[in-house]
Amino acid sequence: MQELLLIGIGTGNPDHVTREGARAIRDADLILIPHKGSGKEDLAGLREQIITDLSDSPPPLVHFDIPKRHADDGYLQGVEEWHDAIAGRWQEAIAEHPDARRVALLIWGDPSLYDSSLRIADRLDPKPTIRVIPGITALQALTAAHAIPINELGAPYIVTTGRRIRDEGWPDPVTSVAVMLDGECSFQSLDPALYDIWWGAFVGMKEQILIHGPLQEVSQRIIDTRAAARTEHGWIMDIYLLRRCAG
């Protein structure tokens, strides 16, 4: 392998793939498709559908299982070991196709925003040339779906994770916080009277769900809606923006 292509594909909508991304899919000699376990087969299927939609003659696809993440030695150590294991799966899959010169992975959202594909790619040996094709992020899809700007006039914002909201609270002094990778509805750890929320699941897809309002009024509806959607689909991807209430 000479080149590893990390292709941002947006949030599962083929229209989110850029022309550069579509060309990279067609140019690839091999595409790796992750399987994330029982109940999440749709995630692999969506990637395959995007490839089919964008290429008349798709390259060979190789499926690999994502190993489970353990946190017995702490969160960060668990993530490091998990990334090592995923890199090993990539290496094994690539080794089965020694003639593939350009190997691609389709990255949900964008490879540069809260995604670890670049860190995993750094573990490959020998290390290939890495090419990143940017995609629409979940954050862009969320603000577009709600038709809002992410920040208030002249003000900064922070993008963080649910874990940090739970552990550290609101990151002062900003007034707008985008929260990703939150499987715990971590907004419950905040004073609901102080914030408005713009929440979305399956953003940009036909299954898209949007809820917006004062956190104290819509918090339970988001929790219930999220649980029902996850049960229905077997998986869920959601993101939300919190903003301090005016005054």
Rank of each mutant, 00 (worst) to 15 (best):
G200W: 01
H83N: 11
H16Y: 07
I25G: 11
L153D: 11
H97R: 11
S57F: 01
I211A: 10
W198Q: 13
P98G: 03
R101I: 00
G88P: 09
S55P: 04
D110Q: 00
L142G: 15
V62L: 12
P156G: 08
R69P: 10
F64Y: 15
R226D: 14
A44W: 05
P173R: 00
A71N: 14
D110W: 00
L4W: 09
M237R: 02
G21K: 01
S186A: 03
D125G: 08
D27L: 02
V179A: 05
D172T: 04
G154A: 07
I209K: 14
I107G: 13
I94M: 15
R221H: 14
I197M: 10
N13W: 05
R89H: 13
A141H: 03
E48N: 08
E96Y: 07
H70C: 12
V17I: 08
L4P: 14
P58A: 03
P126L: 05
P128T: 02
I236C: 11
D238F: 02
T11I: 00
I150F: 11
G213F: 07
G234N: 06
I133S: 11
S176N: 12
Y195Q: 04
I133V: 15
M237Y: 05
A178Y: 01
N13R: 05
D115Q: 08
E3N: 06
E96I: 05
L6V: 09
E207P: 10
P111S: 08
A246C: 13
W90R: 04
A144E: 14
V218W: 06
P111A: 04
V179P: 12
I197D: 13
G162S: 02
V132S: 10
D15F: 01
S38M: 10
A44L: 01
L118N: 04
D182M: 02
R230H: 15
R102Y: 07
